[in-house]
Amino acid sequence: MSTQLLTLLALLLMGIGVFGLLSRRHIMKIIVSFSLLDTGIHILLVAVGYRSQGTAPIFDADLTVREGLARGGGSGSFRSGPYGHSYRTGCYGADAQFRR
């Protein structure tokens, strides 16, 4: 899908959501309207941030998997050490997990 089409879809969903929020009094219809508005906002954010031929900013040709995980990439980016200190910003330093 093109960026213009995604933007149009997002604005349409946001418009339906705002109309539903302002014109309906039934709580379930208000919740559905809010959900449509929220979905439209998310689609708009994706459409605005899309870059043709772009890559994710966390990937680098010279970056190894181990270095990427040390920088906080992957599913464990918010991991913490003993006593709740973060490995990245806590008292252990950025590469503490590799010094053990």
Results as ranks from 00 to 15, higher is better:
48 V>Y: 07
74 G>I: 08
84 G>R: 04
91 C>M: 10
36 L>D: 01
11 L>H: 05
50 Y>W: 13
37 L>D: 00
57 P>A: 10
73 G>F: 12
71 R>F: 07
9 L>W: 05
30 I>M: 05
28 M>T: 11
29 K>A: 12
60 D>Q: 15
14 M>E: 12
38 D>I: 07
77 S>T: 04
56 A>Y: 14
2 S>T: 12
22 L>K: 09
71 R>G: 04
35 S>E: 08
13 L>S: 06
5 L>W: 08
36 L>A: 09
22 L>S: 06
9 L>Q: 10
78 F>A: 12
98 F>V: 07
86 S>D: 02
87 Y>C: 04
18 V>I: 15
39 T>G: 09
85 H>C: 07
61 A>Q: 08
36 L>I: 03
70 A>Y: 03
86 S>Y: 03
80 S>L: 10
49 G>A: 11
42 H>W: 09
4 Q>A: 13
98 F>G: 03
100 R>S: 13
52 S>I: 12
60 D>F: 12
53 Q>M: 08
90 G>R: 00
86 S>G: 02
53 Q>N: 15
51 R>P: 01
12 L>I: 06
81 G>E: 03
84 G>F: 00
95 D>Q: 14
17 G>R: 08
19 F>I: 10
45 L>M: 10
16 I>C: 07
87 Y>S: 02
6 L>D: 01
56 A>C: 09
28 M>L: 13
17 G>E: 00
59 F>H: 08
99 R>C: 07
14 M>D: 04
27 I>P: 07
51 R>G: 03
33 S>V: 00
54 G>V: 04
73 G>S: 05
28 M>P: 00
35 S>Y: 03
46 V>R: 07
30 I>R: 09
39 T>I: 10
69 L>Q: 11
26 H>C: 04
75 S>V: 11
67 E>G: 02
3 T>W: 04
21 L>R: 10
30 I>K: 04
43 I>Q: 00
51 R>Q: 15
31 I>D: 01
12 L>N: 14
39 T>Y: 13
86 S>M: 00
15 G>C: 13
34 F>Q: 03
83 Y>T: 09
73 G>E: 15
24 R>E: 12
73 G>R: 11
25 R>W: 10
60 D>R: 14
28 M>C: 02
72 G>M: 01
98 F>C: 04
20 G>S: 04
56 A>M: 14
56 A>N: 15
100 R>L: 13
91 C>W: 14
26 H>A: 11
44 L>K: 10
19 F>C: 01
1 M>G: 14
6 L>K: 12
50 Y>D: 10
7 T>D: 08
41 I>V: 15
86 S>H: 03
55 T>N: 14
96 A>N: 08
18 V>R: 02
20 G>T: 03
45 L>R: 12
45 L>E: 15
34 F>M: 13
54 G>F: 06
48 V>F: 15
78 F>H: 03
79 R>Q: 09
89 T>V: 02
79 R>F: 06
44 L>W: 06
17 G>Y: 01
50 Y>C: 08
37 L>W: 09
21 L>I: 05
6 L>V: 01
89 T>H: 07
47 A>S: 11
49 G>R: 06
89 T>C: 04
64 T>Y: 03
56 A>T: 11
17 G>A: 05
23 S>M: 14
83 Y>P: 01
89 T>R: 06
95 D>A: 11
37 L>A: 09
44 L>Y: 12
77 S>F: 11
94 A>W: 02
28 M>I: 05
7 T>K: 11
82 P>V: 08
44 L>T: 03
81 G>C: 05
